[in-house]
Simulated scan of single mutants.
Amino acid sequence: MGDWATDFDIFDPEYVQHPFAIWDELRQVCPVAQSARWGGSYLLTTHADVLSTAHDVDRFSSSSVLVVPVPFTYDEHGNRSRPVINADPPEHGPERRLMLPFFTRLAAERYREPTREMCRRLLLQFVDDETVDVAQDYARQIPTRVIADILGLDPERGEEFTEWVRGALELGLMDSEILRRSREAVESFLDREIERRREEPGDDLISFLLTAEIHGQSMPLHVLRSTLSLMLVAGIDTTWSAIGAALWHLARHSQDRRRLVAEPELIPVAVEEFLRAYSPVTMARVARADATVGTTHVEAGARILLNFPAANRDPAVFDRPDEVIVDRGVNPHIAFGTGIHRCLGANLARMEMQVAIEEFLGAIPEFELSDPAAVAWTGGQVRGPRHVPVRILERPGRP
């Protein structure tokens, strides 16, 4: 790769595998990088620029939040398929408020014990194994089943859900045919689920949104379908990546792992630090008119990448930003975004991460990477480890 400041590539293997040094360099020389790749965009690397741009809904639109421009899709009536994450004010507020009851801290607690039981069942599946891929066999399985429960879907279809996730947020961003097939599969599946709820309503989110109203009107079908698609796809990939990154870290840092085993009450604090240090998500905004970000001029229509992971390693905000400090006291990270589009599922993701780590360390307190070279990360919209093979060194009562 040449000059990251003028020709960055979010899919470049070096960027995916080793982004931290790149962001450090860019903060010093830019700090807003530019690139003509993947449709052209600007990459923000400081906490201040990311924060101000995310909050400035008057100058920067959420109409297109993917890091690569992809064609909009439309229903048979010509309505653009658009989830709430792509809505700007004034449409955004009422649509988001409809779903808030399902994602409050109290609502997330409803799933804590079912998630704990699920983690224990997953751990039993490799109770006799010497090695396990904690990203594939553990981290990936957890959000798939939780989001299926919230939407009232069959959790046994998790493999299909994962394939759609990769098609929408990973492989499909570089291959339009994969993206098209994934979109069609998700929409067709959700159309069937929506019709089933019309006939047999339940207590899930799909049933709720079918009967909910905005200003006395039902949520339009194209918005409903797109919002449910977002919940299914984004709800799986981001949490899968976050849990996988945390376990990857613990496999490499025995002092942190052993401290959390000895002090499990510290795990919620450590989760916040893992979120800061290994934030998975980068989002985009579109400049409504010519604007200035920091000291950089951007033209109307330009795509601005809100690099939350880089913002969370900004030394202007975080002490020793490149160190993972599991008992970090002051931690104003923005791993879940910031502003009106802050992640709706933040409470749910925190709970899943806490339980996943608690249960894993309780069952397998000693483990290490079995093959560091086999660890594989994905990048682009969501950065996270897809394969983390570990060697199990100890189980309680079975050294």
Rank of each mutant, 00 (worst) to 15 (best):
D137L: 10
R285V: 11
D327C: 04
P90Y: 14
G158K: 14
R192A: 14
F11H: 12
R285C: 03
R37V: 07
P309F: 10
T6P: 05
M231H: 11
G339H: 09
I206A: 00
P94M: 09
R110P: 01
I325T: 11
R258A: 01
G202A: 13
V382P: 04
M353R: 08
P396S: 01
Y278F: 14
P31N: 07
R225W: 01
I85V: 14
V382I: 15
E95F: 12
L153E: 00
L393T: 04
R196Y: 09
E163C: 06
I142D: 07
A270Q: 06
P309E: 04
E193P: 09
E195G: 07
D154H: 05
Q255A: 13
R181M: 09
V127R: 15
E195Y: 08
S81H: 15
F20T: 10
E130D: 15
R116S: 08
T104S: 15
A346T: 02
V84Y: 13
V57P: 00
V65W: 11
R59T: 12
R320N: 12
D88M: 08
A373N: 10
H47T: 05
N307D: 07
L348M: 14
P372D: 04
D322E: 12
A87N: 06
Q255S: 14
R157Y: 01
L106Y: 07
P396N: 02
T53I: 10
E113R: 14
N347D: 08
L250N: 06
T45W: 04
G337A: 08
V271D: 08
D137S: 14
I206P: 01
A374H: 07
Y278K: 07
V65Q: 10
G2L: 12
A346Q: 15
W240H: 15
R225P: 06
A316Y: 02
T73A: 13
D129V: 09
Q34K: 13
L106P: 00
P71I: 06
H18E: 11
T296L: 03
A246L: 07
L260C: 07
G339R: 10
S229Y: 01
P114K: 10
V330F: 00
Q125S: 15
E163T: 14
E14R: 15
D3V: 05
R342A: 10
I206G: 01
V70H: 03
H222P: 02
L123H: 05
A139C: 08
